[in-house]
Design a protein around this nucleic acid. Structure first.
Length: 510
RNA sequence: GCCCCCAUCGUCUAGCCUGGCCUAGGACACGGGCCUUUCAAGCCCGCGACACGGGUUCAAAUCCCGUUGGGGGCACCA
């Protein structure tokens, strides 16, 4: 059985790996992780990462999905070396453009006796399955066309009779396949089916198309989801029927929902989307996650480096990734860990870079004129205060609004009443008014304000809180004096005056 | 129903292959504290797991068997 563990380290020679999505939807967490591992292996070994589009099923094709898939991959920084949009020496990279290739290899399998024509109609097949179910048997092809003499089958094909091509699965014996994470897996051939390789419309199915492409494209490591484990033996049979050398097979575990109970359903995906979470990469961008954080996060779902290192840049991952440390057990998605990594990566970003990345989020939040220059001084004040980029406009939007609208009651300081707070506001305004407008810095505003706190016999928080709410309109804000410096003296005084009016009204009412 | 895979804190995991360094380590989350003008960030402390049952062995989280639980698959989808 040709199922040996590679004698050399799988990562020692240049790897050719491929990510082969079908254009039926958006790139999700599972696909992204597979693509990430592909890229890491390719970059680490000096090999190639290939993007191949598996679009042989015209019924499921979704227009625009291919472009979306590529956009998401690029956002994650997972650029391919060969693919449908950039070509390469093993193209075409879209299966819909490779129909003749699959037909040729299917024919080869028929000729060598490893496959046969089947003329059973879908109706007969459905009926057959129904009866098998009723008898409590596992659904499988009953082999009706398996014994049609080749000459007769050939005649019927030439006569134009609708047909498919099936793999002629051995009825006896076992096959042992080797998965890098799980080791040898042995199954009895009789539990396998005569799977269809080519549909009646002439298009190859995944089982044939992917094997042919992987071989022709020189793929050294097939990294794919564990949903392929059940048909893995078929794929090995096909490789062996052709006499091809098998790639290293790596089946990644599936992602479970956060509870760990069951895998993600479409319904779950919708619920997440409502709660500032998503399993789709394109949403993650919109929600303010950094590609660095997403990569770091998914890299660690099923892979680890050691017993304590968790923060990885792409460069770190390329250096440290290894197939050997992949884990075969399923992993539940943990969104709060994504938040954690996002915070870490936001803080790791140079300020200039953060400012640059924040711009589109301010635009989207209704501040269309905000520029990198505007954001540059603000970034140091909010860098440790946001976990996602979309939070920045929420916490710092007041810098760009003409007017802030504090909730009047929030102007009342802790343990004080409206009248007392009014007095605090008036005195604070006075103190701040005394600082020159061209030197409205923390060095000049904070000491006199501290002195005021002492003079009033209050806590710093009580006095600063009144000013904070007055100037930012928020109870929670970046540090006060740095904030005042950016807002500027004119606006500060203006907003203090507004607050004083509100407090006067409140005090009168009381 | 049948086939296959998986099994350490709530979650992600280290340790398992090459039994003893494990009174099981790290991280997220959670609880508490420090710092502090709010909120964060940072730092400290705490909570919390080897699914169960048999075996093998002087010794088992680690090896073997079974059970249970979870997951995947059983299409002219991928």
């Amino acid at each position: 059985m040709a199922s040996t563990t590679p004698s050399t380290s799988p990562t020692s020679t240049p790897a050719r790996v491929r990510f082969a999505p079908s254009p039926t939807g958006f790139l999700h967490l599972g696909g992204a992780r597979t693509a990430l591992y592909d890229v890491l292996l390719a970059r680490q070994t000096g090999g190639q990462f290939i993007l191949r589009i598996e679009d042989t099923d015209r019924k499921r094709y979704i227009p625009g999905a291919e472009e979306e898939l590529m956009r998401s991959l690029r956002w994650l920084g997972l650029e391919w070396d060969e693919g449908p949009d950039k070509g390469g020496p093993y193209g075409p990279y879209r299966q819909s453009e490779r129909k003749e290739i699959y037909q040729k290899y299917a024919q080869q399998l028929v000729d060598s006796g490893h496959a046969y024509y089947c003329f059973c109609t879908p109706q007969r097949l459905a009926q057959m399955r129904k009866e098998q179910q009723a008898r409590g048997e596992p659904p499988h092809y009953d082999g009706t066309c398996r014994h049609i003499p080749p000459e007769e089958a050939q005649r019927r094909v030439e006569a134009g009779e609708p047909h498919v091509i099936r793999f002629k699965m051995p009825k006896e014996g076992t096959i042992t396949v080797h998965d890098l994470l799980r080791g040898d897996i042995t199954v009895e051939n009789r539990t396998l089916d005569d799977y269809i390789l080519v549909k009646s419309d002439g298009w190859a199915l995944y089982h044939l198309a992917a094997m042919v492409d992987d071989h022709l494209m020189g793929i050294t490591h097939v990294i794919r989801g564990s949903e392929w484990l059940p048909t893995f033996p078929l794929h090995a049979h096909i490789y062996r029927a052709f006499g091809w050398e098998e790639p290293i097979w790596v089946h990644l575990s599936v992602f479970l929902k956060p509870s760990g109970k069951g895998k993600m359903s479409k319904r779950d995906a919708e619920v997440f989307r409502k709660g500032h979470k998503s399993i789709f990469i394109k949403d993650l961008e919109e929600l303010g996650y950094l590609p660095e954080a997403v990569n770091n996060w998914i890299a660690l779902m099923g892979w680890s480096y050691d017993d304590h290192t968790e923060f990885f840049t792409m460069q770190d991952l390329i250096e440290k990734f290894s197939l050997e440390r992949l884990k075969p057990s399923p992993a539940a998605v943990n969104f709060s860990k994504l938040d954690h990594f996002n915070g870490l990566h936001i803080r790791a970003l140079p300020e200039e870079e953060l400012a640059r990345r924040l711009v589109p989020y301010f635009h989207a939040a209704g501040y269309p004129d905000v520029t990198v220059d505007d954001l540059r001084p603000i970034v140091p004040l909010i860098q440790t205060r946001i976990t996602t980029l979309d939070e920045a406009p929420k916490i710092a939007g007041f810098f760009f609004r003409e007017d802030v609208e504090p909730v009047p009651e929030e102007l009342i300081a802790k343990k004080l009443d409206a009248a007392q707070s009014l007095e605090v506001a008036r005195r604070a305004r006075e103190v701040l008014a005394a600082v020159p407008a061209d030197a409205f810095t923390p060095e000049n505003t904070e000491p006199p304000m501290r002195a005021l706190v002492d003079a009033l016999g209050l806590k710093a928080g009580q006095v600063f809180g009144v000013v904070r709410v007055a100037v930012t309109g928020q109870r929670v804000s970046p540090p006060l004096f740095e904030t005042l410096a950016i807002v500027g003296k004119a606006k500060t005084i203006e907003r203090m005056d507004e607050a004083i009016k509100m407090l006067e009204a409140l005090a009168k009412k009381a």
